[in-house]
Write a protein that binds this DNA or RNA. Structure first.
Lengths: 213, 213
DNA sequence: CGAAGAATTGAGGTTAATCAACGAGGGTGG
DNA sequence: CCACCCTCGTTGATTAACCTCAATTCTTCG
């Protein structure tokens, strides 16, 4: 869902431009004055926050269509980092937030994000380590960018994040994440060889372990 | 911030009505078809989700101005319960979501909620039990409904939730919450006598314990 | 007064964190 | 080309935090 390609929406803002970033760079830093709102065209972005003592929590993984840089006041409340090569559409803040149609378009996307944040709060507050990792893998599979092989028993996904990043997303330590992966691997629920991120997943066996079903 | 009392917004929907609820009743159940969007006029509402085995996570505490019942698809993804006597403005879904000005108004509120959900994710994923309880108490103090005594060292707040509800909000058990309260009380950071919810808080001593500063 | 719900506190168990060692790539520079 | 280093991942041993189970007290309400 893209604002610019939405033909039914009137009054497209003139101040939209395309921006590219390489993998693993900071796109937005916490505390920065908010100049623009970004929508992802391609690639993946992580949104996180840091505590003063260095603890980090990643709370959103965004793919194509996702928006970030949205803030109620004038300053960004979180960090945005690219995970892959990323292409973004940047909407200048001033024009965008004065456009009723843009705000309306944005409300639609914010609803989806809130829904995901709700689900993630349940994971962080109430799920065990294995349930969290199982939920994470299911999330990768169900991502819109991964339409292949839905319905089949076994699927291949690419894990783009390091153990440490996954840990910061799931509210665990990297060792606990690694142990959960190993445990799922020993149980023949997932399979992988090299550290290239490619992983086979037996969906029907994995889903019951997420705690959600 | 209320939509109806916002004089600059054009085209107010005809289908807004006022609804009242007593304390501790279910306003919206998970899975229900979404018929309306609600904005709180007065009182407090908790938003939560249940896992199939009964685990519960409360992820939002809403006061006057807060909205809920917003969903990207046609069904509610979470439970809304009143904490106090509540007065709501209900906006029928059909007219509301076809109104650009209403959606634009809603985007503003959703931004604020997303910000709160981000903060809560950090709490759930990365904070210790005492830090969570300290953060919870600070949240009560900083709520818009509690403008009294900002700046002074000591403030009185009313804790409306039971230990069990606080636990489900903070991702802990009720015993751990109780122990954290006792610990803060022994350290002369908070003070209370009866179980009526009234509590004195020494803000300057409490704030450093939240982990955020 | 008795009963029911809420809060507190203690003892003991479990999970995940911490501390630590090691191995497997990948890149850099000699 | 190979040696080295650095990051990442895995695994083991131990510790600490929080959960579970249980008993007791406090509070409210019929």
């Amino acid at each position: 869902m893209s604002y610019l390609s939405e033909p039914t929406v009137a009054g497209s803002p003139s101040s939209a431009r395309s921006v590219d970033f390489p993998p693993r760079v900071t796109i937005i830093d916490e505390g920065e004055p908010a100049r623009a709102i970004y929508q992802i065209v391609s690639g993946n972005v992580m949104i996180s926050k840091l505590l003063p003592d260095g603890r980090r929590q990643i709370f959103e993984l965004l793919g194509p269509g996702g928006i970030f840089g949205v803030t109620p006041n004038g300053h960004h409340d979180s960090v945005a980092e690219s995970l892959t090569d990323v292409r973004l559409t940047a909407f200048d803040k001033g024009p965008a937030e004065n456009s009723l149609s843009f705000n309306s378009f944005m409300a639609e996307l914010l609803k989806i994000q809130i829904c995901a944040l709700h689900e993630h709060a349940v994971l962080l507050g109430r799920k065990s380590a294995v349930e969290r990792v199982a939920s994470y893998i299911m999330e990768l599979i169900e991502a819109p960018s991964h339409q292949a092989g839905i319905g089949s028993d076994s699927v291949t996904v690419r894990v783009l994040m390091t153990r440490s990043e996954i840990a910061d997303y799931l509210g665990l330590t990297l060792e606990t994440v690694s142990r959960a992966f190993s445990q799922l691997k020993r149980s023949d629920i997932i399979a992988y060889e090299r550290h290239d991120g490619l992983m086979q997943v037996h969906i029907k066996r994995l889903r019951p372990l997420t705690g959600t079903y």
